[in-house]
Design a protein around this nucleic acid. Sequence first.
DNA 1: CACTTTCGTTGGATCGGTTCAAATTTTGAC
DNA 2: GTCAAAATTTGAACCGATCCAACGAAAGTG
Lengths: 359, 359
Amino acid sequence: MAPFISAKTRPVRLADIAKAAGVSHGTASNVFARPEIVREEVRERVKAAAEAMGYGGPDPKGRLLRAGKVNAIGVATAEPLSYFFDDPFARVMMASISQACDATGAGISLVSAANNEQLAWNIQSALVDGFIVFCVDGGSRLVELARERKLPFVALDLDSDDDDAVAAIGVDNIAGAGLAARHLTELGHRRFAVLALPVADSGFGPTTREQMEKALYSGTRDRLRGYFAELSRVDIDVERVPIYETVNDEESVWAGLDHIFAGAETPTAILAMSDRMALHALDWLRQRGITVPGDVSIVGFDGVPEGAVSSPPLTTIVQPIAEMGRLAVKAILENDGSFSRQSLPVQLVVRASSGPSPA
Amino acid sequence: MAPFISAKTRPVRLADIAKAAGVSHGTASNVFARPEIVREEVRERVKAAAEAMGYGGPDPKGRLLRAGKVNAIGVATAEPLSYFFDDPFARVMMASISQACDATGAGISLVSAANNEQLAWNIQSALVDGFIVFCVDGGSRLVELARERKLPFVALDLDSDDDDAVAAIGVDNIAGAGLAARHLTELGHRRFAVLALPVADSGFGPTTREQMEKALYSGTRDRLRGYFAELSRVDIDVERVPIYETVNDEESVWAGLDHIFAGAETPTAILAMSDRMALHALDWLRQRGITVPGDVSIVGFDGVPEGAVSSPPLTTIVQPIAEMGRLAVKAILENDGSFSRQSLPVQLVVRASSGPSPA
DNA sequence: CACTTTCGTTGGATCGGTTCAAATTTTGAC
DNA sequence: GTCAAAATTTGAACCGATCCAACGAAAGTG
């Protein structure tokens, strides 16, 4: 029999029903928070008053201030909010983060913003007990903002060059990239191309090794270092390996391949810094009638589930995404003030997108 | 030069830095909230004090109480949190909800819980300005809980039988299901089977029309009504159409098909109440060497993107998911206290999973 | 120089609860 | 019936900010 909710009426507060029931607000509070310590008769009276006045239970806004704990962790990214549901890597990561949160009863707040200014505000005003920061593009700014809140936070993906004072969980990108490159060189490939993750905010296009060293996000930088260290080891001239910076979407990957395959000496092996790019590349190659792995081999990075069911299934470097999510949540919730930087192992999973060099 | 965050030290408050800077707390507050009205010299002094004491800016917990608005909407489901990232329908819906939120600068809180008791608590204590309720399994309980909060809320997916006092956005499930069934009867199919969404909390297994009428979730009920109304219209004996209740996952769908195809009279047409089920069914059929649409036709429901790229691509009833998400967010944010029930049109999209009956 | 504006600052009230020591009532024991 | 122990209830303090009426000082006006 609740009356229609009116946007106008001042909401009823605990104090209102306390007065109506003729008890102190302390007792009224107990009725909701610890009903067992209130005498039954009083309890019923207060509950009846609450019901009669359309009281929706103690407002968490009030409780929060006293309790201090929100019981929710914030997940922040500089991408638009829909990134969490669109990007394969983010999705798998979020699924594992949410499992960990579910297990502990914590909620999840998604924090993001269309523009930079709003991002700052959203992080500053997020009601959370800590942040998990997705360090994709724009990572360092995010980390800075999160740190300013003086809340526990963990950066996802290690920034090898960054300040040691930030807790981070990531993988050894250099080693992983090395694994990918070595796999291909062992198959006899000598002509490579690299599809790179975003380096700057500047869009996409061909880039160079020097530019890459300035990448905002160290994962990008480290993966390139890993690739090139391995290629150099077998005397491939890395200065001649084309690198195309994408924004990790179909358009930019396709543009990259257009560019890479327009050259005289087309590659037989493509190193993609994400599975998402690799999967888009697979589509592009199929449309051009270029066979994989007959004409071109490709190795991704991340280990998203889509890679296992693509055609052909994707050879890739799998990150222990589930483990990373679990550890991140644990780091926030059991935060003891200590910083930790954990580097998890990656694994080369060979599927059908890589094969012997046609040469 | 921020010192190490210690979990022990009592966090500094605005009042602390006000004292340190020798100003009133009112002025200190202004330094952060409306810096332009504070004299520069004072402003700098306060900021310096804040910096020196490691103050992380005004705590949103405090601000919240005064401001009243959280600037975040809660999305609630009775499923585990990972549902938002695993389920194709949920993902598309969330992507559109997040776009709408991004546009207005609102955040998103994911609310869910492993068990029922915790669900209640999580909804009661969620810091949000309103709820969007995913009315899949357990919808009515969720709606009840959300309503008790006396916050604006919208149920996603219309419950045709439910109380009119709840705002809801959904599609005409009966009409949509009718479209699916008619498409198949027009192709000459006479032997049908139905893969149903969850009816009760009781797991999966074969079920009956009577059971379905008691479905917790009206979408399930209405889709069956739509199917059967259409089948009856062309004189198919719906009492003989097998219905298998699944929990919308691979295991239960496969078990359902095992059961359905174990019978003497196997169907030539399958009506799946979700694309997710239809896609799992496609896998099962492929593994058995049953061709689609040669031997069996199948029509899904929802219109998730995966359906467009499956093999074969899925004929389905597409819901205007993006539009629903946008409207839901709008209903929460522009809540004027009025209830509205909106029913959006669905569309039959014919792709390659349906063809003429082999008979 | 007295008088009004304007600008900046102050401190109390408020947001909506929880908590706890102290006060009060009830119960139990003798 | 008395008194200590146990069970309830009370009311003040607190959580961390924002808001606003009132006030003091500096600037402008006649």
